[in-house]
């Protein structure tokens, strides 16, 4: 039951993008087209889940027993960078179409704050291994959901009549704000 709650919270009520503002850069960058948004979402979810597992193991078996907690940020970011490199090679080899669509944004997953944020939340909340994995999956699913909704809205926005100075980032941010308002409605679930 608790695991289900963690998952739902990460997807809806505490959505990483719309509640914690994590992963805004790819959210604004990739959400132009819905198919690349989906690919990006899946890649990020994959990295998130793997990163949650890897950093949990490192934290519990290396950093905590040897009292090296001050190395947390440095070691987490190295693990994430390594994982992203792996995913990039994998996508390049197996899904070369997707690789071309994602382009620059794939290596940028490393600096996606959602992933480091996820690992930090995981440490702060003292999750068990299973909880951490579910949290990673949920956070990724929430990120993908927000990205796809946003991509859908932005495709419509392309053809609407927006004041000049709002074009681009301005209107996207305001749309995200309205989306965040809508997601607040989910807070009654838990």
């Amino acid at each position: 039951m608790e695991i289900l709650l963690i998952f739902i919270a990460a997807v809806l009520t505490q959505n990483f993008v719309l509640h914690y503002f994590l992963g805004i850069c790819p959210f604004l960058g990739v959400s132009g087209k819905s198919n690349s948004a989906f690919g990006m979402g899946i890649a990020t979810t994959f990295v998130m889940t793997l990163a949650a597992m890897a950093t949990w193991l490192i934290n519990h078996f290396i950093l905590v027993p040897f009292e090296l907690k001050f190395l947390q940020y440095v070691s987490f970011i190295i693990v994430i960078a390594g994982l992203v490199q792996l995913v990039e090679m994998f996508v390049h080899k197996v899904f070369s179409d997707l690789y071309r669509v994602l382009g620059i944004y794939l290596p940028l997953i490393t600096t996606n704050c959602a992933i480091l944020g996820l690992t930090l939340f995981m440490v702060m909340r003292d999750y068990t291994f299973l909880q951490a994995v579910i949290f990673g999956l949920g956070a990724g699913a929430g990120f993908t959901l927000a990205l796809i909704i946003m991509a859908g809205i932005r495709e419509e926005l392309e053809f609407s009549n927006i004041p000049d100075c709002f074009r681009g980032a301005g209107i996207t941010l305001i749309t995200a704000g309205i989306l965040a308002l809508a997601f607040m409605g989910f807070s009654g679930i838990i």
Partner: peptide, 25 residues
């Protein structure tokens, strides 16, 4: 209250970016 919540952050930054665009144009 909205201004203190996440939604307010997005909306006010959106207007801020638009304002800067407007001024620089």
């Amino acid at each position: 209250v909205i201004m203190a919540l996440p939604a307010g952050a997005f909306i006010s930054l959106g207007f801020f970016v638009a304002l800067v665009n407007f001024v620089s144009k």
